[in-house]
Structures are given as C-alpha cells and as structure tokens.
Amino acid sequence: MMFPERHSRNNIEPSSDFYLPAFFIAVLFAINLSPVPFMAVRAAEIPLAQRQSGFELMQAETQAMQRNDLSNPAMLWVREGEKLWDEKPGENGQSCVACHGVVTGMAGVAASYPTLDTASGRPIDLTGRIQQCRTDRQRASAWPRESRALLAMASLIGLQSRGMPIMPAPDPISKAGAARGKALFNQRVGQLNLSCAQCHDDNWGRKLGSATIPQGHPTGYPIYRLEWQGVGSLQRRLRNCLAGVRAEAFPFGADALIDLELFLMERAAGMTVETPAVRP
C-alpha cells in the first residue's frame, strides 16, 4: 500500500493554551497540599528532542532480547499470526491473504491506528478492525480480547510497520477523540488521585519503586512483557496503569481507551514503531 510521507516533527506544535492551564494546575496543587512533594509543580509536556522510547530505559540484556528476532519471545506470536493469516476460519472460506495479499502489504497500517471507521463514523483501533474483518468479511466468530490468536494477528500486522514513523490519523473525528484522550491523560483518577501525565510527563526517568517510569509512548505494542510472561495489548497496559492508581479500569474496547490510544499516538507522532517490543 501507499505510505504517506513522514510528518515533519516541526508540524506537531505544542498547544498554545498550555501555559495558562499549567499555572492553574500548579495553583490547584498548592491548595490541595499534594501528598507527594516532588509533584508539587506541574512540569511541561515532554519536549520533542527529549522524547524517548521505553526501550532506552531497559537493561542491555532486555534490549538485546528485543533486537534479535530469534530471542524475542513475541516472535512466537508473530509466527502464529503468519499461520492465521492464511487460514479460512469462516463459512465463506475467506482468508486474510485472499483480500490483503501477502502480509508485507500491511506495512504502515499499524502506524496510523486507531483511525476513523467510515462505516460507523467512530474511531476504531487495530484490534477492533481485525475483529470487524473476522465477523463481517470472514463470517467467523470474533476472537476474545487479549486472546492469543488476536494478539498474534495484531503482532504480525504491527511488525509490518516496524521502523516506520507513527502517523496519527488526520481525520477530524480521530482528532476529536485524541483531544478527549488528552483530557483523560491529564485527569486525576483513582484512590491515589494521579493522572497519567503526573508520572509520564512530569516524572519519567525517575523511579516508581524499583521500576523506572517511562514516557509512556505506544511504540511497541503489542509487547512481550516479561512480567506478564506473554504478549499483551496497549489496552491491557492502560488498564494496568488504571488499576495501579486504584481507579476502576475501563473495559476492553471502551471508547475512553480508544481515545487514550488516539492521544498517545498523537503524542508519539514521528517516533519509530518497534512492534513487537520487549518490556520488563
């Protein structure tokens, strides 16, 4: 398929209305007497020059695991995805390969998901699109969220975009979703009363327990996480974080999670896709 030209990083301007809210939030912090002193002043969004993948924060051994496709366990899922690509699961005997051709033709696809689903007029993530293909076009049953087969297919499609820049969907509906996602990212939630931004914008590179806080860019999903001993989706990661701040996690496939995904892709625009990544 045609792959659109890379965005210039200069095109991604920081929001002009940023400084006023930052001041406002700082005042709120002062009033609230935040229990965590180092968070008292809200830092800025991460400057483009300082953006980095969580890969940079990993130990050399874990980095080596990701670099070598024969030691990256996520490649086991990719292999399964390759088999599924040729399978005919539904009653109409349609395989992925019958419509899409060889899977290398999916290069660049995962780099711009979530995107607008024209049929429903709503943003859809890659997982949702795979499910849509299965139910509508293959007349097969949808795979359960986080099932091995679904993650295998998403890993295989994601791998085709490896090395390409993240290209957030440009349509107004996806942009509106990203704006809602940005609001969610900055909203304090849960019993710990923390927002995503407080860790991933303000305190990345510092420690949370023994773990280094990454900037939270979705460059490598689905990822093989050593802690999970398996492959998981970005939505699993987001639900993990929500549970971590003692908030009620949105269910898989919820609009809020897709909005967050849209915002994270916008925030990571131009960064390189690493799928399938390894993380600790």
Binding site: D69, L70, S71, L76, R79, E80, R148
Partner: peptide, 8 residues
Amino acid sequence: MASALIDA
C-alpha cells in the same frame, strides 16, 4: 499451538 525459534 507450539512453536520454537532456533538461533544457530
């Protein structure tokens, strides 16, 4: 679905 990867 068992599979293996060999680096040799």
